[in-house]
Design a protein around this nucleic acid. Structure first.
Lengths: 343, 343
DNA sequence: ATGAAAGCGCTAACAG
DNA sequence: CTGTTAGCGCTTTCAT
């Protein structure tokens, strides 16, 4: 076994500085007033002995561990990595350390992580719940903030997510401003809730602009590059007769990248003869030629904001709130500007 | 403040089950023998009271916190996210929880994180050290494993990294097998240690194959897409006179992607008229057309293996070791196979 | 196979 | 401003 060598304790420091344990604690906390001479002696002793406070012991007594946790589907997914990064930065700046767990969208793993979290006596947790029967009530005593679109399922727990509605509207408006009509859509499989939500917004847009929503051309993808590629091929075949400029709005960036590939294969030039708009803002979108114009979800802000809410909730400063952060347009050239072309 | 409501303790369980604290502990640990009836009663009490072991208290007494830490430059960088994921999986399966810290290549942040790590009394840490004066000695009592190319700087501490030498050789061999001679290179700036290391391997390869190393054509990039793009343009201009097939080996994937863009702009078809080989294995390489053929660093394995070493070291099963994990070829089509073309 | 007692290192009361 | 006292909840050691 690795020798757990004896580290100096608060008692050693107190003795060496000629004060009591309590005084050392006071210096450590920096809250209460301690005489200058005592403080100096303590600080000196700490330095000399290389004393490091045992936060385990401190936690036990104070009831606060200084630990926070985040449970996300997969840290190796760029979106969640960004979220985690945002949360991490904020946690550190608030004096907390962050435990990170990947659930892989697996209910069992999630449950196991939650158990570990409770046993570690973390002070709070940010969670992207996968289980539908997530027992938020059971957790009522643990300060929690949900991320993702959980507000609907768990109205009684705080949540932070991106404003999908605003994002889709932004995409549609951008296309319109650039001279496109209602675009064709490449959406996820019909089974997914996200698809329904997407369509609801499209319908709303149609109503606002006096467009017949049933006109909308929709192809199914599966959120992969290949799926987007196939969907785009179908769209291109279908629209071959028309001479109109084809504009496509994909429900995520991977499918959008697939659509760009398909148009290139068809001899079309994206951003000139065809237009593709993505949704997500993944880094890979910057490396295509042209770059993918997309609606970026505010991933890092989501993490930061969730952590902010969590810390506030721990401190009792705020009540349960649901926050939707706005998406942003990243224009990299995959959507043609028909205004200039038309002139 | 959030009410830190009273959770059941081991004493409550003991009372309810009609046994002593010690017996409850024994059941919890599952190591010592406990009579069936006692075990059943304890288990039952635990379930009924919703008891959850306070690992803080357990840690304090036992000296093991069940916490491990990883310090990496940036969790939002896909490479490090993969490393972290590997470490995480292994940590979880060993019964540990993982604290994650991003240092941003900043010595001060690193120092702050290390302090937090020590104070949290983690049982061990995986670290990608940024500070050259990293005080590995000071940490001698904390089980540690370094990741990245730290073996040279810290021979006394275990480390896990990718086998750059083998990776570059693999790239060169692959190009040769596909009928290319010594490729042109797009490397990082001369200031970087990585460039020197890369060149050393190229020279070795040249010697093995009776090639004059001074023949090698080298362009400078800066590890960015744009840098690679510019470097490739220069290469294409330079080689325009020659009719030979141009093959390029870039020192990272971003520059390789830039090179692919440049060749497309020059009207060339990558994987047919030109060949580009990358190095890293970033996800974005899969989305270009054709996909980027590259040498993939074993990111996830690095994390997994580092965690394995760490756990072994904590358990006293192994001594300090330096491990270099092999890179792998991902063939996605950006390197032409001249053998078939030639026939 | 089980229980009793003694702390782990610290902080939160309370006195002074 | 400072010291004393009493634990936090658990594991460990030593009895039994």
């Amino acid at each position: 076994m690795h020798k757990p060598y004896k580290r100096a304790t608060i008692i050693d420091v107190a003795q060496s500085a000629g004060v009591s344990k309590s005084t050392v604690t006071r210096v450590l906390e920096g809250k209460s007033y301690v005489s200058e001479s005592a403080r100096a002696r303590v600080l000196n002793a700490i330095k000399e002995m290389g004393y490091e406070r045992n936060s385990l012991a401190a936690s036990m007594r104070s009831g606060r561990s200084g630990l926070l946790a985040i449970v996300i589907p997969d840290i190796s997914n760029p979106f969640w990595a960004e979220v985690t990064r945002g949360a991490q930065d904020r946690a550190i700046s608030e004096g907390y350390s962050l435990l990170v767990f990947s659930s892989d969208w697996d209910t069992q793993k999630e449950a196991a992580h939650l158990q570990a979290i409770r046993q570690a006596r973390v002070d709070g947790a940010i969670i992207n719940p996968v289980a539908d029967n997530f027992d938020a009530h059971f957790f009522s005593a643990l300060p929690m903030v949900f991320i993702g679109s959980s507000a609907e399922r768990f109205p009684q727990t705080s949540s932070v997510g991106s404003d999908i509605h605003q994002g889709i509207m932004l995409g549609l408006d951008t296309l319109q401003i650039k001279g496109h009509g209602l675009p064709a859509f490449i959406l996820g499989p019909a089974s997914r809730l996200a698809r329904t939500r997407f369509l609801r917004v499209v319908e709303e847009y149609c109503q606002q602009h006096d467009i017949d929503p049933t006109q909308a051309i929709i192809e199914d993808g599966d959120y992969t590059v290949e799926g987007g590629q196939r969907a785009m091929k179908r769209l291109l075949t279908r629209e071959k007769s028309t001479n109109a400029h084809l504009a496509v709005f994909a429900a995520n960036d991977l499918m959008a990248l697939g659509a760009m590939m398909a148009s290139r294969e068809a001899g079309l030039c994206c951003g000139k003869n065809v237009s593709v708009m993505g949704f997500d803002g993944i880094p890979a979108g910057a490396f295509s030629l042209p770059g993918l114009t997309t609606i970026q979800k505010p991933s890092r802000q989501i993490g930061r904001c969730a952590m902010e809410s969590l810390v506030n909730e721990i401190a009792g400063r705020t009540e349960c709130r649901h926050i939707h952060l706005p998406c942003e347009l990243i224009d990299r050239g995959s959507v043609a500007d028909l205004r200039t072309t038309d002139q």
